[in-house]
Simulated assay, not measured.
Amino acid sequence: MVEYPPPAQQPMYPPMPEPIVGVDVFPPQQHRRWTVLLRVILAIPHFVVLALVGIALAVVAFLGWFGALFTGALPAWAGDFLRGALAYTFRVTAYLYLLVDVYPPFSFEVNANYPVQVLYPAPTRLNRWAVFFRFILAFPILVLTSWLSSGWMVISPIIWLIMLITGRMPAAVFQATAAVFRCQVRVDAYWLMLTPTYLSQVFGDGPLPEPSAVAPPLPYTPASPTRPLLTSKAGRVLLWVILVVGILWSFFNPSPNYSHHNEPTRTNHVEWGTP
């Protein structure tokens, strides 16, 4: 069994000036084609669990909002539950997005041994006005993430077919998919008051170094293929395509899906292939 290093033991790139949620994704060299073929069917048990988790998440988030509004900090018990529930949700999401091939464990453990690691910042004080107006402040990024998610779902049959034939996710597709996934993680963490940091760096942390005879040394040691998330020109172009497709889909879809962020674990947050 592959042991994925816990976040505390992973080499870090330069720290961010604000408490931001980090995401580590360790993709396999080769996906098993039969798991790609049956991905949604295999995930059905998780859909059942996510439906129940979504109810608990909504209740805890509501109570946590009141606690943060009056005390200026998310109650510890609420933060612990939300971090664990979201970590589980994000593992299932990454599995459905074909970023990884290992079946997600039914665990709320934040640092579970899985090729997807969510690195939450330490609990910090929250601005009460930002808590009170959380929905208004978060609305633009909720819509943006909805467009990205919808756009990815629309093109997902193409990605699924490529991976079914080759067993691999092309590098540019991985970068764009990881960027969409990371946006979902960070927006949900902000929406649920696990971090005061607003969404930024939607298109990654920077471009990939240009190929050269002698590659210049990096000023840091990457912790994973997604931390930092460096995107190629093809990856950024594909991300723009995903965004445009998502915007167009929202105009033709009679029921916009950004409202699902009220319940981050609902299955329409992670479904793919059936837009």
Rank of each mutant, 00 (worst) to 15 (best):
Leu248Gln: 08
Asp188Val: 11
Pro170Ala: 06
Ser224Met: 01
Ser250His: 14
Gln30Lys: 14
Ala138Asn: 12
Phe251Gly: 15
Gln201Asn: 15
Asn262Gly: 14
Val21Lys: 04
Arg83Met: 09
Glu263Thr: 11
Pro75Val: 03
Asp188Tyr: 00
Val59Ile: 15
Leu161Lys: 01
Arg227Trp: 09
Ala76Cys: 00
Ala78Ile: 00
Trp160Leu: 12
Leu148Pro: 01
Pro27Ser: 05
Trp34Pro: 03
Leu86Val: 03
Thr274Trp: 13
Ala76Arg: 01
Ala87Arg: 03
Pro6Arg: 15
Phe90Trp: 13
Pro170Leu: 04
Phe70Pro: 10
Leu229Trp: 00
Met193His: 10
Ser224Trp: 01
Trp152Lys: 07
Tyr190Gln: 02
Pro157Cys: 07
Asp205Gln: 05
Ala112Thr: 12
Pro28Asn: 00
Arg186Pro: 02
Thr89His: 15
Gly64Ala: 00
Tyr198Ile: 14
Ile165Tyr: 02
Glu109Gly: 01
Pro45Glu: 06
Arg227Gln: 12
Pro7Asn: 12
Pro228Leu: 08
Arg39Val: 04
Ala138Pro: 03
Arg125Met: 13
Ala138Thr: 09
Phe133Val: 14
Leu74Val: 01
Thr267Cys: 06
Leu82Asn: 04
Thr166Ser: 15
Val131Ile: 06
Thr93Gly: 11
Thr197Glu: 06
Leu144Trp: 07
Val173Met: 14
Gly72Tyr: 05
Val118Trp: 01
His31Tyr: 12
Val131Leu: 01
Tyr13Cys: 09
Thr195Gly: 04
Gly273Ser: 13
Leu238Phe: 07
Ser250Ala: 15
Phe251Arg: 11
Val49Thr: 08
Pro5Ile: 00
Leu248Met: 15
Phe66Tyr: 12
Leu199Gly: 07
Ala112Cys: 09
Arg182Phe: 07
Pro123Gly: 04
Ala213Val: 13
Leu229Gly: 03
Tyr258Gln: 12
Phe252Tyr: 13
Leu238Glu: 03
Leu57Val: 09
Ala122Ser: 13
Pro140Ser: 05
Pro211Asp: 02
Leu42Asn: 09
Glu18Asn: 11
Leu148Gln: 08
Val173Ser: 05
Pro5Phe: 04
Phe62Cys: 10
Ala138Glu: 15
Ala85Leu: 09
Thr197Val: 14
Arg128Trp: 11
Leu69Val: 02
Ser259Cys: 08
Ser150Thr: 14
Asn111Gln: 10
Phe26Thr: 05
Pro7Cys: 03
Gly167Glu: 03
Asn113Arg: 04
Ser212Glu: 14
Ser250Trp: 10
